[in-house]
Amino acid sequence: MSDKKNVLVLCTGNSCRSQLMHGYLAKFLGDQANVYSAGIETHGVNPKAIQVMHEDGVDIAHHTSNHVDEYAAVPFDYVITVCDNAREACPVFPSSATMLHHNFPDPAKATGTPDKILDQFRAVREQVKTYAQAFMRQYFQ
């Protein structure tokens, strides 16, 4: 039996915010945790999410957009919802899971020039990175 913790990051479409968080948690926690991300729907991984993570040295190009039901059998230690919609529609997990929530803005809804849209992705990436570091310090030190 592994001592690794199971962490699930949940958002609406598993395309941006949960993918960013998944990438950072996998990087920061390394072999301390199995990190999963999923959505209540699946929208595919957003190419801009892949791009801004690559800029920060994290490769999420291999990630897939997964539906939360795929992980029904996984005993999660932590479930982090990263948007209000996911929290409201979140399936019930066994009570042993620590439920955490932070509503990040959805960069996929950004408008304007391509540069302005990428800036929004970068801003959300930085918020997610800060949260991921705080989560690691609080639960994995």
Rank of each mutant, 00 (worst) to 15 (best):
27 K>S: 10
121 F>W: 06
5 K>Q: 12
139 Y>A: 02
49 A>Y: 03
97 A>P: 04
106 D>F: 06
100 L>E: 14
30 G>Y: 08
4 K>M: 14
65 S>G: 12
14 N>T: 11
103 N>K: 14
29 L>T: 06
106 D>N: 11
44 G>T: 07
127 Q>C: 03
68 V>T: 03
141 Q>F: 10
39 G>V: 10
71 Y>F: 15
49 A>C: 06
111 T>P: 00
79 V>H: 02
29 L>H: 06
25 L>T: 07
74 V>L: 03
63 H>M: 08
18 S>L: 08
90 C>R: 15
60 I>E: 02
68 V>E: 00
24 Y>K: 02
32 Q>M: 13
15 S>V: 08
117 I>M: 05
21 M>C: 10
36 Y>E: 03
114 P>S: 10
5 K>I: 10
103 N>L: 13
112 G>F: 04
41 E>T: 11
80 I>F: 13
119 D>M: 05
31 D>N: 14
90 C>V: 07
69 D>W: 09
102 H>S: 12
84 D>N: 15
35 V>N: 00
9 V>N: 02
64 T>Q: 14
130 T>H: 05
40 I>Y: 04
74 V>Y: 02
23 G>P: 07
116 K>V: 14
40 I>G: 05
140 F>D: 10
80 I>R: 09
117 I>D: 02
63 H>A: 06
13 G>S: 03
135 F>V: 07
113 T>W: 10
24 Y>C: 00
23 G>E: 09
44 G>Y: 02
